[in-house]
Design a protein around this nucleic acid. Structure first.
Lengths: 150, 150
DNA sequence: ATTGAAAATCGCCGTTT
DNA sequence: AAACGGCGATTTTCAAT
């Protein structure tokens, strides 16, 4: 599928604020409500707009600590990967499981109430995962999301 | 603020799909539309529901490669951090800038059309950032988002 | 239970490619 | 002629009270 500048403007606008109406968005880029809506629908149908999700404020929920873990597996057969993924997705504190290629095999985004709570998760849950070798940790200080290239 | 199981069910449902209506969501958890809507409004007012974002399908947009970069700065004064952050947010291919504590100073999520395009971004844009020391890369194979602890 | 707004269409006609 | 947009209108749905 081919995207023109109008599509890009719509995607950029929706990235900033997904709650705005088709009429308001169209007004800002010089399109009528139906035309804007048709384009949004096409972008949805083409799979470019993949969905819409709320972003939860972890701080407000009492999760003050976010840690990124790089995990290297000790053994890497197909079964090892499957076993690891099955087990890791059962840890509630894990928000994101990324299978990667490079120095590590998996990257995990983990939230905890505080550092003491994180230590518990690390020792009782992460270090006991099947096949785990090296684990590296980075504590999140701040993050900024950018619109991306579009 | 205090969350009960009903609030948790609402947050979990909205994390999966933010487009669903209060009536539909309520129906699934045994609440009326107004009751569900009031709870959602309270969660919004309390700052637990922080906003709503569309998820763009990078693949469909022609960005087939996602790479995580761990960046270590060579020099780490306040000015170095400010300079680095200013410069890195000007790279369109960077979707996410995470300031972290640990082996690395920053973690970047970078998208590119393909590996050749990524090499260009890495050499021309990332390696020329002010104060950059070591850079480590992990190529994303797949990722799975989880609801988190809520 | 109600209302007012917005989403989600449709048809038609003009323009551009 | 195919694709797209504007305009006007309608129906349906849903947020909000």
């Amino acid at each position: 599928m081919m995207l023109d500048d109008t599509d890009r403007a719509i995607l950029a606008a929706l990235s900033r604020d997904a709650t705005q109406t088709a009429a308001a968005l169209g007004g800002r880029i010089g399109l009528s409500q139906p035309a804007t809506w048709r384009r949004i629908k096409r972008l949805r149908d083409d799979g470019v707009l993949a969905g819409q999700r709320v972003s939860l404020n972890a701080q407000a929920l009492g999760f003050g600590v976010t840690v990124f873990l790089g995990v290297k597996l000790a053994t890497k057969g197909r079964v090892s990967l499957d076993d690891f993924e099955r087990a890791v997705t059962a840890i509630p504190e894990v928000q994101l499981v990324e299978h990667v290629l490079g120095l590590y095999d998996y990257r995990l985004r983990v939230v905890a109430r505080d550092l003491a709570d994180f230590e518990r998760v690390l020792r009782r849950r992460v270090m006991t995962l099947p096949g785990v070798g090296d684990v590296e940790a980075n504590v999140l200080l701040s993050e900024e999301r950018r619109p991306g290239p579009i």
